[in-house]
C-alpha cells in the first residue's frame, strides 16, 4: 500500500477544500443563485404573479435544492474519498430507481451482479487503478451473461441480461467516470464545475424554451422540451463551461480556449442527451417520474439524468488530451 501524505491529503483533507479559486467562486455562485431563487419566488408570490400551484411547485423545488446542494457539495469539499463513496452511493440509488421502474428488481441475481459491479467500480476508483476500472464493463458483461445462464430459465434471458448490462453501463460506468475525476489533483473545481454547468444546462433550456417557444425537440420522448431551449442551453452552457474550464485547467493543455469550448459543447449536448435517455426509459416503461424522493423533482435519477452521459464524455476528452490524475500515485491499495 502506498498511501503517502499527498494521497492522504487528497482523500481526506478538507482543510484544502477552498484552495482553488474556482471552488470558492462556484460556492458563492450557488449560494447567490439559491438566494435569488428564494427572493424571486417570494416577491413574485407577494405580487400575485404566481398561481398557487406554481408557487407550491417552486417552493418544493427550492426546498429540495436546499437539501440536494449540501449533499452534492459537502462530500466534494470533504475529500476525494467521500466524493468517490458519494458517487458510488448515487450509482446505487439510480440503479434502485431504474430496477423498480423496469421490474428488474425482481431478478435478484441480476441485481446482485450489478451492485457488485458498482462496488468494484467504486473500489477501482478509490484505488486509482485505471486498468481495472476500464476492464469492469467487459468483466461485468461476462459475469451477467454467464451467471444468469445458471438459472436455466431461457425465457426472458435477453431482457434480464440486457437490462442489467444497460443499467450497469449507465449508472455504474457512466457515473463512475465522475467519481474517477476525484483521482485528479484538480478534482474539486472540476467536479463542482461539471455539476453546476450540467444543472445550469437544464435551467437554461427551461428558461429559453419558455421565453422563445417554438417547435418541440422530441415530442414523443419529452413533450416539454423545445428546439429553441436546446439551442439556447447549448450556447449558454458552452459559454459558462468554457469560462470555468479555462480557469480550472489554466496552465495545462486542456486550458486552451479551443478545448474549453469543446468541453462546453460536450457538457451541453451530453447533458441534454442524458436527460432524453431517461425520458425515453420513462416513456417506454410508462411512468412519469423515476421516484418521489425529491419533492418537485421526482426521483434521484430525474435530477442526475444529465450527468450519466456527460461524465464519460468529458472524462475521456480530458483523458485523451492530457490524462486524468496521471501525477497521482496509482493502485494506492493494491500496489503493483
Amino acid at each position: 500500500m502506498t498511501l503517502d501524505q499527498a494521497t492522504l491529503d487528497r482523500l481526506f483533507n478538507w482543510r484544502t477544500a477552498l484552495d482553488h479559486p474556482v471552488t470558492k467562486e462556484l460556492l458563492v455562485f450557488v449560494a447567490a443563485a439559491l438566494v435569488a431563487a428564494i427572493l424571486t419566488t417570494v416577491l413574485l408570490g407577494r405580487a400575485g404573479r404566481l398561481s398557487a400551484d406554481l408557487r407550491k411547485d417552486l417552493r418544493e423545488r427550492i426546498r429540495s435544492w436546499l437539501i440536494l446542494i449540501p449533499i452534492m457539495v459537502i462530500p466534494v469539499l470533504a475529500g476525494a474519498a467521500w466524493t468517490i463513496l458519494g458517487v458510488g452511493l448515487l450509482s446505487l440509488l439510480c440503479y434502485r430507481e431504474f430496477s423498480l421502474a423496469t421490474g428488474l428488481f425482481r431478478e435478484k441475481l441480476v441485481s446482485v451482479l450489478v451492485v457488485l459491479g458498482i462496488a468494484a467500480i467504486t473500489f477501482a476508483t478509490f484505488d486509482n487503478w485505471y486498468g481495472f476500472f476500464v476492464a469492469l464493463p467487459s468483466l461485468t458483461l461476462c459475469a451477467l451473461a454467464a451467471v444468469v445462464v445458471g438459472q436455466d430459465r431461457p425465457k426472458g434471458y435477453i431482457q434480464r441480461v440486457g437490462l442489467g448490462v444497460f443499467a450497469f453501463m449507465l449508472f455504474g460506468v457512466g457515473l463512475g467516470h465522475l467519481g474517477f475525476f476525484a483521482n485528479d489533483r484538480l478534482y474539486r473545481p472540476v467536479i463542482l464545475s461539471l455539476l453546476v454547468c450540467v444543472q445550469m444546462n437544464d435551467v437554461f433550456a427551461y428558461c429559453v424554451g419558455k421565453s422563445v417557444g417554438g417547435p418541440k425537440l422530441a415530442p414523443h420522448t419529452s413533450p416539454n422540451k423545445t428546439i429553441s431551449g436546446a439551442l439556447g442551453a447549448l450556447v449558454l452552457t458552452t459559454g459558462l463551461t468554457s469560462l470555468l474550464m479555462h480557469q480550472v485547467f489554466a496552465g495545462t493543455e486542456v486550458g486552451a480556449w479551443g478545448h474549453c469550448l469543446a468541453l462546453g459543447l460536450l457538457v451541453s449536448v451530453a447533458g441534454q442527451m442524458g436527460d432524453l435517455v431517461v425520458s425515453s426509459i420513462k416513456r417506454d416503461v410508462g411512468i412519469k417520474d423515476m421516484g418521489a424522493v425529491l419533492a418537485g423533482h421526482g426521483g434521484v435519477l430525474d435530477r442526475f439524468n444529465s450527468v450519466l452521459l456527460m461524465s464519460p464524455a468529458v472524462f475521456h476528452y480530458v483523458g485523451y488530451i492530457q490524462g486524468v490524475g496521471l501525477d497521482q500515485p496509482r493502485r494506492i491499495l493494491t500496489g503493483g
Binding site: 423498480l100 421490474g103 416503461v285 411512468i287 417520474d289
Partner: peptide, 14 residues
C-alpha cells in the same frame, strides 16, 4: 416488445 412490470409500490413514502 419487452414487457415491463414496474414495482406496484414505487414512489410511495417509506
Amino acid at each position: 416488445s419487452w414487457e415491463y412490470k414496474p414495482a406496484k409500490d414505487s414512489g410511495l413514502p417509506m
